Lab assay of single mutants.
Amino acid sequence: MSRESDVEAQQSHGSSACSQPHGSVTQSQGSSSQSQGISSSSTSTMPNSSQSSHSSSGTLSSLETVSTQELYSIPEDQEPEDQEPEEPTPAPWARLWALQDGFANLECVNDNYWFGRDKSCEYCFDEPLLKRTDKYRTYSKKHFRIFREVGPKNSYIAYIEDHSGNGTFVNTELVGKGKRRPLNNNSEIALSLSRNKVFVFFDLTVDDQSVYPKALRDEYIMSKTLGSGACGEVKLAFERKTCKKVAIKIISKRKFAIGSAREADPALNVETEIEILKKLNHPCIIKIKNFFDAEDYYIVLELMEGGELFDKVVGNKRLKEATCKLYFYQMLLAVQYLHENGIIHRDLKPENVLLSSQEEDCLIKITDFGHSKILGETSLMRTLCGTPTYLAPEVLVSVGTAGYNRAVDCWSLGVILFICLSGYPPFSEHRTQVSLKDQITSGKYNFIPEVWAEVSEKALDLVKKLLVVDPKARFTTEEALRHPWLQDEDMKRKFQDLLSEENESTALPQVL
C-alpha cells in the first residue's frame, strides 16, 4: 500500500538533515546492470571481512566470479597478432551492500547512478522477487541517484539526491524531493519508509565518522582530508542543518603536550582565546566558526575552494607581477588587521594563504593565525623552527619566545613576496656552502639577476625593505602599504570589485 501522500506532506515541511535544493538533472540513458558494476546475484546478508577486503582492492568479489566451465583457453599460436591488451577495470570509489532480497550489490565505478523502476536507470528495480513485494509499487520510476562531484583539492564528494514520490531516507532522515545531501561511510539508505532499509553505503575513500566526538558529529558530517601540516590535519565537512561546506582543523593534544602547556602557563585558556579569535572579522582572514574541545581540538573554519598559494608557486613557478601585487596587498591588509588586534601570526607561508577560486584574479585569505593562542608560545615555536624557511632572523637566534615582536610577520611576508615574484625561495638548504640558518640570520638571500630583470624596481625595493635583518629597521605593514609599488588604483579597484562580488555589503578597509 502506498504512503505517498503521508511522505509528500513530510517532504513539504523539509528536513533537518544536511540537504539543499538542487537544479534539474539530465537523465542518464539506460545500460545493462552488469556493465555498471552490479553483481549478477542479489543478497540479503552483509559481507564478511574477506569479501570486503577483496573488493576494496579493486579485484572481483566472490559475488562477481564466473564459473571456469564457461571459459576456455586460447593457445598462444592462435592469439590474433593485432589484439590489444584489455584496459584494467577501474577501482570502485564506493560500494552499496544490499540489505534485502531482490536488490543486488553495487560497485560504484562510474560517477553517476540512477536507481528506480524505469529501465533507463543504471540500477533498475526489475528483479522478479522484488516485483512480488508489497513495497515495489511505492518505488518511483526514478527514485534517487548517487553521484560524486569534484571538491576541494581535486578530491571527490559523494551525494545522494531524492527524486521520489514516497521519499528517500539516509539514516532515517528524509532527504526531500529535489534535494541532495552528502553521503558518508556506513550510511543506511531506506526507500519509501524510513524503516525500509535497502542499502548500506560504503565510501571507500573516507574514514568512519565514529572516531570523532559526538558533539562534533551532531553538527557536522566529516568527509575527506584536505591537507595536513606540522600543526594538524584539515578535513572537509558539512553543516548538517545547511549542507554548507566547512573546513575542520584537528590539532592533536598529545603531539603538542597541550596539557603540560596549560600547567606551565595557567593563564592559557584555550576556550577564552578561541572566543576572541571567533570575533575577528576581516575579508582577508579565514573566519573561525566553531570550536570543540575533546581528546583533540577541532576548529571549524570557513572553507576556501581555490587551494593554497603554495600550489601556484611550487615547482619554480612565478606569478605575474600584477597578480603578485593583488595578492600581496590583501596579505598586508590581513596581517595589519591581526597586528591591530594584538595577534602575531608567526607562521606566514604560502600554505597559509588560501585562494577563493581558481581564477588568477581572486580574493585571498590568511589562515592559521591563532596557533600560539591554542598551542602555547613554546610549543608552537619548537614546531616552526623545524622548517625555518620563512622564519625571521630574530626568531632563530632567540631562546624560547623572548626578543621578537610583530616584525617577524613582515619578514615572512618579504619571503613570500620574493617567491611569488621570482619563482624560487630566497633562502634554501640546497645552497650547501652556507647553512639555512646562517643565510637567514645574515640576510644573504639568493639573488639571480636574469630572473629579477623581469621584475620592476619598485617591487624589488619593497622586497629589500622587508628582508632587513634588524627588526627595528624592517618595514611595518603600514609602511609597506604606503610603498610606491602598491599605489596602484587599478589594483585596488579590482580588489574592491572582487569584494563586491563576494558580498555587496563588504567595504574596502581604510588604508593610510
Rank of each mutant, 00 (worst) to 15 (best):
S2Y: 08
E4S: 06
E4G: 10
S5G: 15
S5V: 15
D6H: 14
V7G: 12
E8K: 08
E8T: 05
Q10F: 05
Q11E: 12
H13W: 10
S16L: 10
S19K: 05
P21V: 06
S24Q: 15
S24R: 06
T26S: 09
Q29P: 06
S33F: 11
Q36R: 11
G37C: 01
I38N: 06
S39V: 14
S40I: 08
S40H: 15
T43V: 04
S44T: 12
N48D: 13
Q51P: 09
S52M: 10
H54L: 12
S61G: 01
Q69V: 07
Y72E: 07
Y72I: 09
Y72D: 14
I74S: 12
I74W: 06
D77Y: 11
Q78C: 13
E79K: 05
Q83A: 07
P85S: 10
P85R: 07
E87Q: 12
T89P: 11
W93K: 01
W93F: 12
A98I: 05
A98E: 02
A98G: 13
D101P: 09
N105W: 05
L106Q: 09
N112E: 04
N112L: 14
Y113L: 13
W114I: 12
W114Q: 09
F115D: 01
D118N: 11
S120L: 13
D126I: 10
E127A: 06
E127C: 14
L129F: 06
K131D: 06
T133I: 05
D134A: 09
Y139N: 00
K141H: 14
K142E: 12
H143V: 02
F144G: 02
F144P: 00
E149G: 05
A158I: 15
Y159K: 08
D162R: 02
T168M: 01
N171L: 05
T172L: 14
L174N: 07
G176V: 08
K179I: 06
A190Y: 00
S192T: 01
K197F: 11
F201G: 02
D203Y: 15
D203V: 07
P213A: 03
D218K: 04
E219Y: 00
Y220G: 02
S223E: 13
K224W: 02
T225C: 01
L226D: 01
S228D: 00
S228I: 05
G232R: 02
K235C: 05
F238M: 05
E239L: 00
K241Y: 15
K241G: 06
C243E: 10
C243R: 03
K244S: 06
K244Y: 14
K245Q: 09
A247V: 02
A247L: 01
I248Y: 01
I250L: 12
I250T: 01
A257N: 00
I258W: 11
G259D: 08
A261S: 05
E263A: 04
P266C: 15
N269E: 04
